[in-house]
Design a protein around this nucleic acid. Sequence first.
RNA 1: GCGCCCGUAGCUCAGCUGGAUUAGAGCGUCGGCCUCCGAAGCCGAAGGCCACAGGUUCGAAUCCUGUCGGGCGCACCA
Length: 671
Amino acid sequence: MILPVHDRLRAHVAHLLTSLYALAPAETPPIVLDYPPNRDLGDLGTPLAFELARRLRKAPKAIAQEIASAFGTVEGVVGVSAAANGYLNFFLDRRPFLLDRLAGPAGTTLRDEARFAGKAIVEHTAINPNKAAHIGHLRNSALGDTLVRVLKFRGIPVEVQNYIDDTGVQVADVVVGFRVLEGKTFDEIRAIADSTRFDYFCWDLYARVTEWYDGDKEARLKHRTDTLHDIEHGGNENADIAAFIADRIVRCHLKTMARMNVDYDLLTWEGDILRLKFWAQAFDVLKAKGAVYLQTEGRLAGCWVMPIQEDEEPKAQSQEPEEAEEREKVIVRSNGVVTYVGKDIAYQFWKLGLLGRDFHYRVFALRPNGDPLWATCSTGGENDHPLYGGAAYVYNVIDVRQSYLQKLLKQALVAVGHPEGAERSHHFSYEMVALSHATARELGVAPAPDSEDAKRPFVEVSGRKGLGVKADDLLDTLTRNAGAEVGKRNAELGDEERLRIAQMIGIAAVRYFLIKFSRGKVIAFDLEEALSFEGESGPYIQYAVVRANNIFQKVQQRFGLDEAALLTSLKDIPAGELTGEHGTQDLWALVLEASRLDEVVDQVIRSLEFSVLAKYAFSLAQSFNAFYHRSPILNEERDDVRRWRAAAVIYVRDQLTRALDLMGITVPPRM
RNA sequence: GCGCCCGUAGCUCAGCUGGAUUAGAGCGUCGGCCUCCGAAGCCGAAGGCCACAGGUUCGAAUCCUGUCGGGCGCACCA
């Protein structure tokens, strides 16, 4: 891990600037550290002298030289040089650097600013519990779960919540499907749930209901409204059926997500937010603070509304008085029913510990690791449950189309006097998953050749129409393909082991694929591309680690050298291979790159951009592949050289394994 | 109309708070490498006025303004 070195260097240089140029700490420019293009120039460098040139009225090169000659000593740094172009470069003490890292703890230490801040809540997945999960939901949970892992790596306590909208239109529609279209009784629905892939069954049924509505909206949509009403009020059969459906579908989703190595601490049910009157509580606060008011005239008469603050200052003169009229968002409808935004405000208040009410809690299921998975409930529940809510930071992983609502959420927090809560509420937004034209054709959902849709770069998926790639189908296909490849290469493996490995590879392929694009980009999902286990893919990185493991195992067998013995011996043997005296910097360059994981994670959390992590892991794997092709380990005759190379193999293997773990990817024993 | 996002090699994309001769990957194309730690691999070649125009800066793919393309959002739906 490299960040401690960064911190030491920055502190030292900052101190140097104050004594050298009498710069007050406030005047010192931020000290940017980066990596010179090659190891001969240095290991770390800073363009600081350019920054100071104007203020000090000196040439950058002269400044760099002054700093270099006054540099003194910093632990772990053995050299400083002022490059001809004005860069200031540092050389690290290589042997202790590598030995420290091989011996050091796995995680990073929490930096001061984060240490006492409290826990973070990450909400992700939140699939409507009325049909099977699809590829778009996978992007959400892959991003959300990676965020969780990355925050934990940083030392931040995290609570993972999955929000279940069990009282919404989508569930109501499936109830309508069962009751009105199919004429099924509750018992018959139970029988169907017990004897079919229920999430798949509902997927089709939901599409049929949507189509049926379209046939005669006037008459048929009333079924939806009535059912919705029943569900909201409870104590009737429709409500019981809706609860049953939601429960069963959520269990399907959890299974799908478990395949993806995605796990949760708590399921929060919208129904409980309603029944426990979270909204009423939040509503009182909003009213008391004047954040919402009752509109008495115009088209929104009778609604409780929240004024919408525009970001831009109104362009004063240019606007007509009528147009400058304030915009309003309805929070409570004129019929007294709260909107989605209202419920979400209450939920967000609770997440931040600002509501003053809590759920009851029950155990819903067992998690893959054997711990209980908790869910909210309205009454009863266990007395002895972990504490939930009341977080210092909240990340809501929701697609970009909800940006507007998420903005309103923050406004509500500001309006009730909690600007810091708004500050600490993050909308982790990301773009949609669509289908490539090739894949749409393959699935038989291609748009008509001369339609508008055919001209677009990708084909939209639609849960309502049942168009899209179901998550489990995709995972099945990936596993099957991976299994065939594994079988080809490892004929001696038994079926069970082959399947186990194939699953690891398949998951690596999807998860990496869903992470490697920046989140602001629409993914045009292409089956063939996602199935590819070559090139920039999860399996490529797994392969590098598997090779590293193999190589080191053979080192152990052939030379009787275990890890501990190897590491101890490194203290005393000649280090020419590491220090570059043998004419190549390859080994050191690889070690230095491998050490940057913590820096990358830091950047990932700052930017919430996981493509950075994906690219880093991939290019480290690439460097490693190139390294062992060029630098033999088992066949190397010089003992000290072999030991250093083996040490590098261990370090890179460990760092890559950690990087993969952050992406929810495990390392198979062979592949 | 207003707001947000995107526009980098044939295709799909990286390029973080602006910085170091040739702007990087993957796929595809072309050419090499399995008696030598597993070829899901490695090495090499071709391929780019970083949408366009201004500006800021010692220095811009990166920051600012504008233009043009494309996507999404702006419900008493969630």
